[in-house]
Design a protein around this nucleic acid. Structure first.
Ligand SMILES: [Zn+2]
Ligand SMILES: [Zn+2]
Ligand SMILES: [Zn+2]
Ligand SMILES: [Zn+2]
Lengths: 142, 142
DNA sequence: TCTAACCTTTAAGTTAGGTTTATGGTACGC
DNA sequence: GCGTACCATAAACCTAACTTAAAGGTTAGA
């Protein structure tokens, strides 16, 4: 189909960028892409630039931007918008650092718990702890 | 209300454990808690054990368990289930480590991008890169 | 010409962990 | 007896990024 125009159907595009056709329709609904034209039968037809745009989108996602951020980036002019890009990246960095702190704390808490769980001989010390230090603590003596 | 039975209404419990009443109803729907009884008018009435159970739930969440995991933990007997607890914790650790790896990679990618963005003098190098190295690269020469 | 593999649309479902809204009954102090 | 604060239910809504379903039209190949 459309061999001579160089245009591709949604499925062909989907295959090229390794994304589901439904995702492409979703991106269109969200205003991230737009087919060059429609065939007589209503099929979406994309040109090669759509591939680049989609790779841009996926690259943006890969480095952690939300689709909304990417939509903003797509509207930017390379010449005029470094400030905006920097602000976006800085925001993402702050979020990421916060997540890292939380995850690391979480990791060490869980790791401690695992250690206690492994050492506990009569009854699970972790469950016991969670169920409240405030109780009978039969796990400690007899 | 219920002063002599030692039972508390949902709002009192909510206040004690610092959680919204709607959350408690949600937990009940999800099978995580159950009121001791209902008042004649249909009000949920909880005893003090509910407070402990809720603190268990929040403690579990705080160390990164999903409500489903916590539900499983609640059904466990302290005496018989260390293996299960260990498996749960180990799974969580694997997930957390994977997330940490991703986040760290992401962080350094974004940080590099930020550096390039700051250094780029004519046009945003980051947007240019995302828009495809494969192109005219007018950002490099002239 | 048949059939499989495309494509179209609108609408609803998925994930987690709740919150909000609408509508109406209850409890308590004054 | 009233006002205010509390409680009940069912259902819808929230975020993010999609996926799936239902119902049907199109195209390519043998
Ligand atoms: Zn254990
Ligand atoms: Zn820049
Ligand atoms: Zn849910
Ligand atoms: Zn059909």
């Amino acid at each position: 189909m459309a061999k001579h125009t160089g245009l591709m159907t949604i499925g062909q595009v989907a295959q090229q960028v390794e994304v589901a056709s439904s995702t492409l329709r979703f991106y269109e609904r969200e205003g991230l892409i737009r087919p060059t034209k429609r065939s007589k039968a209503g099929y979406r037809l994309f040109d090669r630039e759509a591939l680049e745009q989609l790779r841009f989108i996926r690259a943006g996602q890969a480095i952690g931007f939300a689709l909304n951020d990417i939509k903003a980036l797509l509207l930017l002019d390379e010449e005029t918008s470094c400030k905006r890009v920097q602000r976006l990246i800085e925001q993402r960095l702050v979020e990421i650092d916060a997540k890292l702190v939380n995850l690391k704390r979480l990791r060490s808490t869980l790791n401690d718990a695992l250690g206690r769980c492994r050492k506990s001989k009569r009854g699970c010390a972790v469950v016991a702890d969670l169920k409240g230090m405030s109780k009978k603590r039969k796990t400690l003596y007899s």
